[in-house]
Amino acid sequence: MAMKGAIVVDRERCKGCGVCIVNCPAKVIGLTKEVNSKGYPMSYMANPEECTGCTNCATVCPDSVITVYRVKV
């Protein structure tokens, strides 16, 4: 059974450290070109169709800004 996932990033709290990007096994996450009010670029789903909801990104996020959702398809 395949899993389909999605993440929601708290854009104002994200510091754009990029630790989630290298820890994503499906290479889903990228950094935005625009910045938040603190001047940081933010993580976002650059390839949303690849996300399996494995939670690795949220597990390593130091600032707990990522919420993960997952469904069976």
Partner: peptide, 30 residues
């Protein structure tokens, strides 16, 4: 997919709402 019933991981409620003062990527936050 993004519906409350599908949530599998999020911010722990024991953490406060404050933004951590640590540098981006600091191990302290984790």
């Amino acid at each position: 997919i993004i519906k409350p019933e599908n949530k599998v991981y999020g911010k722990c409620p024991v953490l406060t709402e404050r933004v951590l003062h640590y540098c981006p990527g600091c191990s302290h936050g984790t």
